[in-house]
Amino acid sequence: MTIKYDAHGLVPAIIQDVKTKRVLMLGYMNEDAYKKTIETKQVTFFSRSKQRLWTKGEESGHFLNLVDIKNDCDNDTLLIQVNPVGSTCHTGTDTCWGEANSESYGFLSQLEEVIKSRKENADSETSYVASLFKKGINKIAQKVGEEAVETVIEAMDTKDDLFLYESADLLFHYLILLQAKGFTLSDIVKELKGRHK
């Protein structure tokens, strides 16, 4: 791999959890740190403050186990995918940005949070989602069934816009059903991963 080190012999190394895709931290490597990382399969940096090689976890035991290294288009930044052991930040948090190292599904995760909020405030008279939670699991399951049938009907037609509309309704109501049963998308992903061989 061609790496363009800067004038100080360093290259930025972005550390990403291979499973959650969360960025955990940013460090710097020199050529020796890169070579040691490849050799030991544990991410090693060049510490600018200590002026020496530093293997993440050498004191805490919170290692970053190497999975893959990619170079960017200019060959001057590394993306290192890892399986982290424990927290990554020296402050004890999962990431150096204070975020939990949990999987995120983009907008769907945001939607789950809105649904959760509506569930917790089910006394709201203006929320459709809150009204479903008030009616109970049977009504929510019934809505999922109705939306599934409507999605199947539109799938057999040629109007893609209607198919997408009903598919969105189905997914939305399914997310509500998951919350009603005490589950989230992460539980479904875990189940699917368990089946994937």
Rank of each mutant, 00 (worst) to 15 (best):
K4G: 04
K4R: 14
Y5N: 05
D6R: 10
G9E: 03
G9W: 03
G9T: 08
V11E: 03
I14Q: 11
Q16I: 15
Q16K: 10
K19R: 13
K19W: 04
T20I: 07
K21F: 13
V23E: 03
L26H: 06
G27Q: 02
G27I: 02
G27C: 08
M29Y: 08
M29D: 09
N30S: 08
E31R: 15
A33Y: 04
A33H: 06
K36A: 06
T37V: 13
I38H: 09
E39K: 15
F45N: 07
S47E: 06
R48L: 05
S49W: 02
K50V: 01
R52Y: 05
R52M: 14
W54E: 10
T55G: 08
G57I: 07
E59P: 06
E59A: 13
F63D: 04
L64P: 00
N65T: 13
N65H: 14
L66P: 00
D68W: 06
D68L: 11
D74C: 13
N75K: 15
D76F: 11
T77I: 09
I80D: 11
V82L: 08
N83A: 12
P84E: 10
P84C: 12
P84H: 10
V85Y: 01
V85S: 05
G86K: 05
C89V: 06
H90I: 05
G92M: 09
G92N: 04
T95Q: 07
C96T: 08
G98K: 04
A100P: 11
S102T: 15
Y105D: 03
Y105H: 14
G106A: 06
L108D: 01
L108K: 02
L108R: 01
S109E: 00
E113K: 00
V114P: 00
V114H: 03
K116H: 12
S117H: 15
K119A: 09
N121Y: 09
A122T: 11
A122M: 14
S124K: 14
S127Y: 02
Y128H: 06
Y128K: 05
